[in-house]
Design a protein around this nucleic acid. Structure first.
Lengths: 139, 139
DNA sequence: CAGCTGTTCTATAAGTAATAGAGCAGCTAG
DNA sequence: CTAGCTGCTCTATTACTTATAGAACAGCTG
């Protein structure tokens, strides 16, 4: 997968990394078991400090998406078929969804437009993973 | 409207205020022209510094939701019927939506569940502004 | 005038983000 | 066994953000 950073953004670098890994897992681009570059290597490729990459990986580990070991490096732990998320996630996530959708509504986007954007985005994820959906083989 | 703050949250206070005003505008609880408490009064009610409230109001003004004048105080400028948002908003918002929905998908929430949450939330907003009260409790 | 309003300035303390360097423990290929 | 990789941890510095606080100014209002 290819990571692109915007160093001039107000979004912290470690969060840009985290967000792009999350999207890659959602689309199926990163399946369960996929290996990510090491912290030092990715930092070198991106031209940033390895502590910053370490922070992003550590955040992904705490979210349950990455498994970090000394022998295998960084490996994707979950994918969209791994079953329900950990306790409390759905409620916290629904709260953030409410804020984000409220922002669009307050700015004048009407309901159908907002829901169409949601549907298109979610279907875009599934298109990326249903290619090998019949296999279902969890490695 | 009633503002509730969580001082122990990792979310900045000024952003909690902003988020709750945004939701109130989306639901119609705060219609165009509604007056908000002054910075000093709201700060006193919440037990926080008025500079923090000022920051939240200033953010809402930059987002086009509030109109701040010395004579009228803080007044809601937009509501869901004010027409399309300002240029560039939709694209930036769609990017954040993608990240948020990807997070749910990566954690194992399936597409229909995610879209159901979106629909329920958006309909909850519209129930607050249209004549038809649907009582769509999100629980 | 007295008392509100938003607004702007300085200032401080605490936390976060990103940088940097050094080192340790565990695994693996040569 | 050695060399080199891995995640991981520690200290440290710089810059920015968050939240606090006090003071003052300009405009409107009763």
């Amino acid at each position: 997968m290819i990571l692109s950073l915007d160093l001039g953004s107000e979004i912290p670098i470690y969060q840009q990394i985290r967000d792009q890994v999350v999207v890659a897992v959602a689309t199926g681009e990163l399946a369960e078991g996929s290996a990510l570059p090491s912290t030092r290597q990715l930092a070198g490729d991106l031209g940033i400090n390895f502590h910053t990459v370490n922070k992003a990986y550590d955040l992904l580990r705490r979210e349950g998406l990455l498994l970090l070991t000394r022998k295998s490096g960084a490996v994707v732990r979950r994918d969209p078929h791994s079953g329900p998320p950990e306790g409390g996630f759905a409620e916290e996530w629904a709260g953030r969804l409410r804020t984000l959708l409220a922002e669009a509504a307050a700015q004048g986007l009407d309901g159908p437009t907002v829901l169409a954007a949601c549907t298109t985005t979610v279907n875009g994820f599934r298109a990326g993973q249903t290619a090998t959906d019949d296999e279902g083989g969890v490695r």
